[in-house]
């Protein structure tokens, strides 16, 4: 366990010392403020519009942070050859995978807290009310979603050795799931066999990350998803994380590491 936490700590420290996160945060903040200061609508609509923009930017930034941070972990260890002194210690490859996952997921969590804090400040400045519980639920679900993505990207990085191809493929897969994946079962109904069955199988296999996307509730002031739904979705997410991590471990376990 020591090793897992030590490796995770290293990932968090790296994010903290690199500039990407700060750049994304400042960009998100600037864009939100900038777009918010242009008032085309009446006072009520602008609050919604502002929140919408801010959440969209948070969504995109968190995705970028999760994917880019995770995708470079193992390839950088191999390229700089630090994987060798690391694995020469009494560390198993499973611990390396677990540590990297935990580190990236925690780093995403910290980034999310910062982003949503900013969101809360922005929306409170307009509405003078605090939606504490819905926001916390949204952060939690968002974090679960990023966990699934981090595990998926980590798996990708032991399969595709070139970090850039991994990043590209992961972005395509994520956009694919969000854009097409959730409609696949309906598309499947209109297709002839065997395409129909294939599409249905794909629909049931892909992680449905869209289920974790709660910002709509934050913007529309609706009563947010019930606790039980959040719990079920979390379990669903954890199952996917476990599946991806086990796959990554199986693949990494017997891999030859020489240059």
């Amino acid at each position: 366990m020591n090793s897992v936490f030590a490796i995770a700590g290293l990932v968090v420290k790296e994010l903290q010392r690199r500039k990407d996160f700060y750049v994304l945060f400042v960009l998100t903040a600037l864009l939100t403020v900038l777009l918010g200061s242009v008032s085309f609508f009446n006072a009520e609509n602008i609050a919604r519009y502002l929140k919408d923009i801010c959440l969209l930017l948070i969504w995109v930034s968190s995705l970028v942070i999760a994917v880019t941070t995770t995708a470079r972990q193992l390839p950088a260890e191999r390229e700089n050859r630090t994987i060798f002194p690391l694995l020469a210690k009494p560390v198993t490859r499973g611990q390396v995978i677990a540590g990297k996952f935990l580190g990236c997921w925690l780093a995403c969590g910290i980034a999310l807290l910062v982003f949503y804090l900013f969101f809360t400040v922005i929306s409170a400045s307009r509405e003078h009310v605090w939606h504490l519980v819905p926001t916390l639920k949204a952060v939690w679900m968002h974090w679960m979603l990023l966990g699934v993505l981090v595990a998926m990207v980590l798996f990708g990085s032991v399969v595709f050795t070139a970090p850039s191809s991994n990043t590209t493929i992961c972005f395509i897969v994520i956009v694919g799931i969000l854009g097409i994946g959730r409609h696949l079962h309906r598309v499947a109904l209109d297709q002839p066999e065997p395409v129909s069955t294939m599409l249905s199988v794909i629909y049931f296999l892909i992680p449905h990350v869209e289920w974790f996307y709660l910002p709509d509730f934050l913007v529309n002031d609706q009563n947010i998803a019930p606790w039980t739904d959040c719990l079920m979705a979390s379990l669903y997410g954890v199952a996917y994380m476990a599946a991806f991590l086990i796959a990554a471990w199986m693949r990494f376990r017997r891999q030859m590491l020489s240059v």
Binding site: L10, K13, E14, R17, R18, N80, R81, T82, F84, P85, A88
Partner: peptide
């Protein structure tokens, strides 16, 4: 109980 010095390693630059 072993210590290992690898060939040409670029240790974590940010540390």
């Amino acid at each position: 109980r072993i210590g290992y010095l690898p060939e040409l390693t670029y240790y974590y630059k940010f540390l």
